[in-house]
């Protein structure tokens, strides 16, 4: 590993870092604003890593550590899939795979008033956005986008939901479209909703398509881009032979 101590933060970008590593020297970059994402913290005059993963840098000034976990820590503006656990007078209680249940205010829907409160049964799957995520408080969700429109948010009917790691769900959402979805989408038609909390929902006209898509996604976790493409294409060929 090239771990020569030098002042430039580029040394560690795209390298694997472990907790404790000091990756950015603040004393050498006065008059600059930098933005820190997950896995980093300020320690006096340096930025230190607190999770193991790949250090990423995006121009002009964003740093974060890319990690993959089985548990989700809520973050503002993440779009996630939640499951209704309980409904109270003011809030729905939603399980988001995080440390605490999240609140979804009954008025946080497009045109939501006291008169028309949506009814969700326990176990309903919702596509929601995180609006508040303060430590020590239950996170707050919303079923509208920032301008108050319903956008795509709301209950997901039918279909099939499975859980994966947060790394996989981030890969599915990456742009350009990740190879496995790209390959599947060319031959099959299906609907998919990916939550950053490691939940993926798939729906299609026939149950067999749902199963194929779900399995292909779950298998792609440990594969590289090219491998994903090959895997998906092989899978599609098999179906065509069978049908």
């Amino acid at each position: 590993m090239d771990s020569k101590p030098s002042g430039s933060p580029a040394t560690f970008v795209d390298h694997l870092v472990v907790p404790g590593d000091l990756v950015v020297d603040l004393s050498s970059m006065t008059n600059q604003t930098i933005k820190l994402g997950g896995g980093l913290r300020q320690d006096c005059d340096a930025i230190s890593v607190m999770k193991a993963g790949k250090l990423r840098f995006s121009k002009p000034n964003k740093y974060w550590v890319e990690t993959s976990q089985k548990r989700y820590v809520p973050c503002v503006e993440d779009t996630i899939l939640g499951i209704v656990v309980d409904s109270k007078a003011d809030n729905f209680l939603i399980d988001i795979k995080g440390p605490a249940l999240a609140f979804l205010p009954v008025l946080a829907f497009e045109g939501g008033t006291r008169r028309n409160i949506p009814k969700f049964e326990v176990g309903t799957l919702l596509y929601v956005r995180v609006v508040k995520a303060n430590p020590g408080m239950n996170p707050e969700l919303s079923c509208t986008d920032a301008s108050g429109k319903a956008a795509e948010f709301g209950a997901l009917k039918d279909g099939y939901m499975f859980e994966c790691s947060t790394g996989l769900s981030r890969m599915l959402l990456s742009s350009p479209t990740c190879p496995v979805l790209d390959a599947l989408g060319k031959k099959l038609s299906f609907e998919i909703a990916v939550g950053l909390n490691g939940r993926v929902w798939v729906n299609a006209n026939s149950p067999s398509t749902v199963i194929i898509v779900a399995n292909a996604i779950m298998n792609s976790e440990s594969l590289s881009g090219v491998q994903q493409k090959i895997m998906a294409e092989k899978l599609l060929q098999k179906i065509q032979v069978n049908s």
């Binding site: 472990v18 993959s68 790394g167 590289s224």
Partner: peptide, 12 residues
């Protein structure tokens, strides 16, 4: 830690 991380994130 790094060898196992690179296996996980090689797809990225």
């Amino acid at each position: 830690l790094q060898s196992q991380l690179s296996n996980d994130s090689s797809k990225a």
